[in-house]
Design a protein around this nucleic acid. Structure first.
Lengths: 222, 222
DNA sequence: AGATATACTTAACCGTGGTTAAGTCAATAG
DNA sequence: CTATTGACTTAACCACGGTTAAGTATATCT
């Protein structure tokens, strides 16, 4: 159908669109760690393939078929991450890299088989939602731990998965998805937050707390 | 290190070298189903990369480092085939296609994990030997079933894996590796062989019998 | 020896996906 | 209003991996 790069672009565009309200070529270039010129050229091809629409100053927008491609890749990626973790015993800080390469080559059959072996899971090891086969995804946005008022008890929903170092550290703290965290207090001016995770106290810095997403109620994970 | 095509070429060269005594560019082109011109060009690159040596009329020969690359790919391929079959329930006629794509992207870690999950297997689902990590491979050549004298009882060692249709048919006959087969008799002039497979009689044509490899003694599979 | 068929090489071309360097465009500062 | 800055585009280039078409070499047949 299309080259592997196309899939990476569409995925990158989707991810930027989740964070920023306008998807600029420069944001995509940054996300893919390539030159802006490469993005300009590729965006023209994406437009020709009707995967995106683009107007200078308006940003890049995925068409429905572009969104479908993006969600397929994200589904592959997250199913693979979970599979590597559950079935092959990968630690959660190494699943992203492997899934990044595998997601472009697995067949529909592979996808279906690991999906059913995993019991049709809804979230990957970092708590990110897995799109369904028909392109639906839970797009609930959770607040960062950094924005939580002291005194609250919150449920870790997901953590950013791009920095293996940080993931290993989070693992040592026990800050996994579906963990309850009590925000004890916080030093001012970007000072550390004092938490209680499963009974154990720990202090986390601003950067870390920006990369952990939580929900206020301690409702069961759905 | 090198592009995915390089790996396919080196693997194809290795496979041809197992069958023919001289690896001609045309044999490689046929194996990869590409033009002869493409092979000419790529062989020059392989020579530059010291993966092969080549002289017109002498054929293509893998260097030690070329052989290593080929065996790495074959190891990936066969481990993956077995894994897909054992762990994901793929039927044996669909593992080749999936493994073909996966073999180029899996990491050392993936290879090691499935290897130990499978208990360090020695053969893939079609009976082909899996090279060890340090590049050793059981290169025993088994005679084709077609060359066996009537009256013998033989052990199926391996079957060619490239034709899914044939694999499904072999499966219906029960002609799996490690199966005992009694060669009852044979019609002359390329006529069918009459076999007894696990008690059941069946007749197989020349083409099929050329794609099943057996050993005479009923020694245990090693 | 000469014609022909087979095997291989070379040349020109294409799409993909990247680079750097230079140019344009629009918003903002003075 | 102009100068500058940041965002984007264009152009020229490159490596990769393929194609077709044309040319060369070698072996074989007569």
């Amino acid at each position: 159908m299309h080259g592997p790069a196309i899939e990476d672009y569409v995925k990158a565009i989707y991810k930027v669109s989740q964070t920023a309200e306008r998807v600029t070529p420069s944001a995509v270039a940054e996300g893919l760690d390539i030159s802006l010129a490469a993005v300009t050229k590729m965006v023209r091809r994406l437009v020709e393939k009707r995967l995106v629409v683009y107007e200078r100053g308006e940003g890049i927008e995925l068409t429905p078929s572009g969104t479908q491609v993006a969600l397929e890749m994200i589904r592959h990626h997250r199913l693979l991450e979970l599979y590597l973790h559950q079935a092959l015993g990968y630690p959660w800080d190494r699943v992203d890299e492997e899934a990044e390469k595998l997601e472009h080559v697995i067949s529909e059959e592979f996808e279906d088989r690991i999906d059913s072996l995993l019991g049709h899971p809804t979230h990957d090891p970092h708590g990110a939602p897995i799109p369904t086969k028909d392109g639906k995804i839970d797009d609930t946005r959770h607040p960062a731990l950094a924005d939580i008022e002291p005194g609250s008890t919150v449920l870790v929903r997901c953590v950013r998965d791009r920095d293996p170092e940080m993931l290993r550290y989070l693992g040592r703290l026990g800050l996994y998805p579906d963990t309850l965290v009590e925000v004890v207090d916080r030093e001012p001016f970007g000072g550390p937050m004092r938490l209680r995770v499963a009974g154990n106290p720990c202090d986390v810095g601003e950067e870390l707390a920006r990369n952990v997403f939580v929900s206020l109620g301690e409702e069961s994970e759905c």
